[in-house]
């Protein structure tokens, strides 16, 4: 049992016992050694289920909207990416800061259980990487908001987030269109990318509406791409670059190419700006506020 797991259990136990919180959002071991699945612990007697290891990759903040109509106080474990998600949810008024007790985890980078599952199933010959793709690009491994913190502060890697975007931009318009249409022809419209996303927190999602039906539901390449155009625009300026959408996609569509393009544009037009870094007023997403001197260019 790792040091962090022991500490995590101890903290959770204390918080539940003294009534500081009613529930703890953490991770527990799943069906395989390389799976640490999100879990809820409500009883101090159950804290031994909790683990903090190198497979705790799921963004727990994405679960918080499920509790938006409760009043319970919640303790939540938060890596760098999760903590930015929490900031965004507070800014979107999905949850209030005083309902949360945040146990930060300085994050050395996680492994992606999906890669291990694919390798174990024989469907993929690729060897699982030591660090998930999303963690290779991570610029904020240390939580930006917390009440208590676990582990040593980590140094972020080199910032190469936009290299792939730049590559696409250097292609011709037709090449770009053909590239994206080909990628999105594989989409099965499972909506895993939406469900995994902390920025996708609308009570009624536009893609679930049928009257009117904004985007066709059949899985043809054009409707698939339209779906992602709308989704990416909806989270523009609020996407915290956690990479969970791309990781959740069962057919491996490079969704971060869309998100990072919008991150780049928002940063250049309104920036410097990155979502979910602080709760200060100045950190409100540029597309969620009114300003007389708005550059108007984003439309």
């Amino acid at each position: 049992m790792s040091d962090n797991t022991a500490k995590a259990r101890e903290i959770a136990k204390k918080l539940l016992q003294d009534g500081t919180v009613a529930m703890v959002l953490g991770w527990e071991k799943g069906s395989e050694p390389y799976v640490s699945a999100p879990t809820v612990v409500r009883d101090a007697a159950d804290v031994d289920r909790l683990v903090v290891d190198e497979y705790c990759i799921h963004d727990l903040a994405a679960l918080l909207p499920d509790y938006r109509d409760h009043s319970d106080k919640i303790a939540i474990f938060a890596k760098g990416c999760d903590s930015r998600g929490i900031v965004r949810l507070i800014q979107d008024r999905v949850i209030t800061r005083d309902r949360l007790y945040i146990i930060g985890i300085n994050c050395p980078g996680m492994k992606d259980p999906n890669e291990f599952i694919r390798a174990a199933s024989g469907l993929s010959k690729a060897k699982p990487a030591d660090k998930a793709a999303k963690c290779l690009h991570c610029q904020y491994p240390n939580p930006v908001i917390y009440d208590e913190i676990l582990g040593e502060a980590q140094k972020p890697g080199a910032d190469q987030r936009l290299t792939e975007v730049d590559k696409i931009e250097s292609m011709s318009a037709d090449e770009r269109y053909d590239f994206f249409i080909k990628e999105f022809s594989r989409c099965i419209r499972c909506y895993a990318c939406r469900n995994a996303c902390v920025a996708c927190n609308c009570r009624t999602c536009i893609f679930d509406e049928t009257k009117p039906q904004w985007v066709g539901r059949s899985t043809d390449p054009v409707n698939n791409l339209l779906y992602q155009i709308v989704r990416a625009m909806h989270v523009a300026g609020r996407c915290i670059e956690c990479g969970e959408c791309e990781r959740a996609c069962p057919v491996g569509i490079p969704l971060m190419l869309l998100n990072r393009k919008l991150i780049k544009d928002v940063d250049q037009l309104f920036g410097p700006y990155q979502a979910g870094l602080s709760l200060e007023d100045e950190a409100i997403p540029p597309l969620s506020r009114y300003r007389v001197d708005d550059p108007d260019e984003f439309m």
Binding site: I168, E169, A173, D174, E175, R176, Y177, D178, F179, F180, L225, I229, A232, M233, L258, K261, L262, D265, E297, F298, M299
Partner: peptide, 18 residues
């Protein structure tokens, strides 16, 4: 939006806002 559509290979002339 315009820049995003352009990124996806759509000609910018097709989307105009005034």
């Amino acid at each position: 939006m315009k820049s995003f559509l352009q990124y996806l290979g759509i000609e910018p002339e097709r989307y105009q806002l005034a």
